[in-house]
Design a binder for these strands. Structure first.
Lengths: 235, 235
DNA sequence: ATCATTTATTTTGTATACATTATCTGATAA
DNA sequence: TTATCAGATAATGTATACAAAATAAATGAT
């Protein structure tokens, strides 16, 4: 089941993307989704056979993943899917705790009318999802909410860095975001953040976002402790 | 003048680094130092001839540079050295303004005795440099001071992100960091930050660092306005 | 002379080949 | 049995070859 077929199809729609980019997306998705578990080795030749693409584009894609930290590459020892330790987890959240409140701050200052409407829509939908107990939907909307605030901040570097962080955090996040109780609680906090942004009160938006993430962090922390470290180090 | 010679020599010392990494360092340095100016195109074949290394390692190195934003690569249109617009400059500083105060905060919380001594040494040296008007030395020490705080924060992700930001900012920074007046002023601010960290007063360290960077930012801003946009778009 | 169109030339993207290094396997000795 | 070493196997790093695309040059028409 090579991805060559899809490529041929897509190439007519998306104006012939390079194979390298497609392999990048392919691997990125497989890693983020957990299809290739943390710690597992990635061997070029196998990806090559799997996709029907030669090693050159594959290597380049892997280097980029390495540069973003999704994969750890040792000089001649192959490459493995990134696995966050408990320490990493804390450090990643320290970064998030720095960047996202900043994004909320600038979002509040820079938001325009169109964006205000979009955010309002999103908040409405979240409210509906909470009432209807549509957990999956709420999960999607929540991460959408965060992403939109980043966008509204208008800072491409902030966006890029947060995207990378989120990729690294994802593993743990997925597990916890599904917990209905926390999701609903989070939705309420989102509402407060939204109000601050809507009224262009940057400092409040920043502070509320900080508290929101801090609570998430606490939640994940307690979850993490329950989770025993697995060792699928090999393979 | 290939770098192959150096490679041979280094390989005996640094345990045979990969050529890819060496090309990466080579290009990184050339870009940061301004030897390859912003906007200039980088063609693989020329780097290949220049270094005596084949295109494969060169491409991989370039992809990594692209991933870090030091170089912009368009799908089939070649790659150019990153050039920050005025807008980019502001965005980069927004990020710095988010991350470095955070680093100072954690540095104050986590610093140990040995690190306290190292920082104290550094501050002493800066004081001497100010008195002796050794501008170049002061410049080196200043950036060393910032880097050490990052290190002390103990957060590898923070460090990595700031490294990348600094690379992108460097172009402009170099120009302004040399202004004696601002450098001396900055040294005083460093002193305040150091005191806060020394006494493990995280919040103060964070706030002082924020103000310090803000002042730098204001300074660069006024400098930037004087600088006319050059258009070395071609070549 | 200017513009458009066709032809060379350059440059990128991808595939493949080969050399070096790492890893695994199994046999032999303690 | 355990440890160690030699040989075999697999995987990475690098070089090279070729095709497709982009760019530059040149030709011709108006």
């Amino acid at each position: 089941m090579t991805i060559r077929e899809e490529i041929k199809i897509n190439s007519r729609i998306i104006q012939s993307q390079t194979l390298q980019n497609q392999v990048y997306d392919y691997l990125h998705h497989k890693i983020i989704s957990g299809a290739i578990p943390p710690g597992q080795r990635i061997v070029e030749e196998r990806i090559s056979q799997e996709t029907g693409i030669s090693r050159s584009p594959i290597r380049e894609a892997i280097r980029r993943l390495g540069s973003e930290g999704l994969v750890t590459v040792s000089p001649r020892g192959g490459v493995r899917v990134y696995r966050a330790t408990f320490s990493d987890f804390k450090h990643l959240y320290e970064c998030r705790l720095s960047l996202e409140p900043t994004a909320a701050y600038y979002a509040a200052l820079k938001i325009n009318e169109k964006q205000k409407n979009q955010l309002a829509d999103l908040v409405d939908k979240m409210e509906v999802s909470v009432k209807k107990k549509e957990i999956d939907q709420l999960k999607v909307l929540s991460s959408h909410f965060h992403r939109m605030i980043l966008e509204v901040s208008g800072n491409p570097y902030l966006i890029k860095m947060m995207n990378q962080l989120n990729s690294l955090i994802t593993f743990y996040r997925n597990a916890v975001l599904n917990i209905p109780h926390r999701l609903e609680e989070g939705a309420k906090e989102h509402y407060g953040i939204w109000q601050a942004i809507q009224t262009q009160d940057g400092k409040t938006a920043e502070q509320l976002m900080r508290e929101h993430i801090q609570k998430d962090y606490q939640f994940y922390l307690s979850e993490y402790r329950h989770t025993t470290e697995k060792n699928d180090q090999k393979e």
